[in-house]
Design a binder for these strands. Structure first.
Lengths: 138, 138
DNA sequence: GCTTGATCTGGAGCGCGCTCCAAGTCCTAT
DNA sequence: ATAGGACTTGGAGCGCGCTCCAGATCAAGC
């Protein structure tokens, strides 16, 4: 059969270990993401080893942003499928991002409320102990 | 044997279903938290059914705050053990809360950075589509 | 008293997001 | 050419935080 997938068109062509180091993901996780369809099949050497191009890195960084803001794998799979289809799905992707962003903003507000309440509790304990907040007495 | 645990000293004495409704936790989760040692053994009826007092509710709400801000069950177990010992552990609890708060604040900052980056991406897609943000054309 | 729905316990099971493994192949340096 | 480390695959396993289940008991209304 034909080889199907070419090497990276041009550019760095990082090994999986190098991408792992740059992204903080483990090689296992990178392979898992690829199996899961989060990443389109990445370029390979003649011997079938992965070589990541700059565009793969950029997409991974975007995925990480989604993950860090709490998007589930299955939602990211959905997004990746839309992206694979092409520019025609930009409205759908935009809708997903807007919805995610709205949830994220609500999440941040909620965390801030909770942080404020924890601060009250902390201050309460501090006065109980008659202690200076954050400062040690000389 | 003696009955060991008295009924609630005074006050509402809610059933597990009522507490579930008020907290948003399921009855199963409430029992799980008790088994896990997050909640001290709650008052019981003569027939061994749980009846939650106001103080139990308040503690649960505090636990939920910790959970919602990302504290793990095992850290909450640690906190609950300290609390069970008594006022002597207030400094330790204060230290835990301060550390948690610090992580939480860092978390919020990170989310805000990511939200800003997502906003840029959203705006990029919007200009690609030549679309009004958030507004439908009449 | 009887019925019906709520609650009890201990333990098994589950979905998520990885993480690890074995057995084999590849790549690089010498 | 060869050694030794990096990489490959498919699949099993894991830790977390619940969630569900069976079989039994309890509580409340009629």
């Amino acid at each position: 059969m034909t080889d199907g997938h070419a090497l990276p068109r041009r550019g760095p062509a990082l090994t999986i270990a190098q991408v792992a180091e740059r992204t903080g993901l483990s090689p296992d996780t990178l392979r898992y993401y690829e199996r899961a369809g989060l990443i389109e099949r990445v370029g390979r050497t003649a011997g079938n080893q992965r070589r990541y191009a700059a565009a793969d890195l950029a997409w991974l960084e975007f995925l990480l942003r989604l993950r860090e803001t709490g998007m589930s794998i299955s939602d990211m799979q959905h997004y990746a499928r839309l992206r694979a289809i092409g520019a025609a799905t930009i409205p759908d992707r935009l809708a997903m991002l807007r919805e995610h962003q709205a949830g994220l903003n609500e999440r941040i507000r909620s965390l801030r409320r909770n942080a404020a309440a924890l601060d009250d509790k902390i201050k309460h304990y501090e006065t109980l102990l008659g202690q200076q907040p954050e400062t040690e007495q000389p």
